[in-house]
């Protein structure tokens, strides 16, 4: 152990926040560039896993927005619902609409795809996060 470094607990708190922020950024970026819900969700899982390895699985579970199964189910439900607005315009299910909002120099693409992607993000976080934390818990119980 190198004594002049802050302890791992401090590191991982910062890392957790950074990873979650990065995962959300990748989710957002996925609209018009490589990235998206799946890969963003995997980064969120990495954040949960890092947290669980330093602290324990229970405290990482408490940091999830919902229990894993509920998180995943909400995610898929959100993805299913994101296809519905198209029906109001008489378009087939899952047809997505996007516009680019312009604020002077900054252009912000906004579309209903982000809802679908957010659903995937939550589903991946719920399923793989739950799976990963269950594994960490199993290892904890063994040792």
């Amino acid at each position: 152990m190198i004594s002049w470094l802050p302890p791992a607990e401090v590191f991982v708190r910062v890392l957790y926040a950074m990873l979650l922020f990065a995962s959300l950024w990748i989710l957002w970026r996925g609209q018009n560039a490589p990235g998206g819900g799946f890969i963003g969700g995997l980064m969120a899982v990495a954040a949960s896993a890092a947290y669980a390895l330093v602290f324990d699985a229970g405290s990482a579970l408490r940091r999830l927005p919902l229990e894993p199964v509920r998180l995943a189910a909400c995610g898929v439900l959100l993805a299913l619902l994101s296809g519905l607005p198209a029906l109001l315009n008489g378009l087939p299910y899952l047809t997505h609409r996007g516009v680019t909002l312009s604020f002077g120099v900054v252009e912000l693409p906004v579309s209903t795809v982000i809802l679908f992607d957010l659903g995937i993000y939550l589903c991946v976080w719920g399923v793989f996060g739950g799976y990963c934390l269950a594994l960490v818990r199993a290892i904890e119980e063994e040792s």
Partner: peptide, 19 residues
């Protein structure tokens, strides 16, 4: 839309049951 309903209805029901 009716074509997709036999797939969407049980899928949504499964998710709501999971919730």
């Amino acid at each position: 839309m009716l074509v997709l309903l036999p797939l969407l209805v049980p899928l949504a029901t499964a998710l709501l049951c999971a919730l």
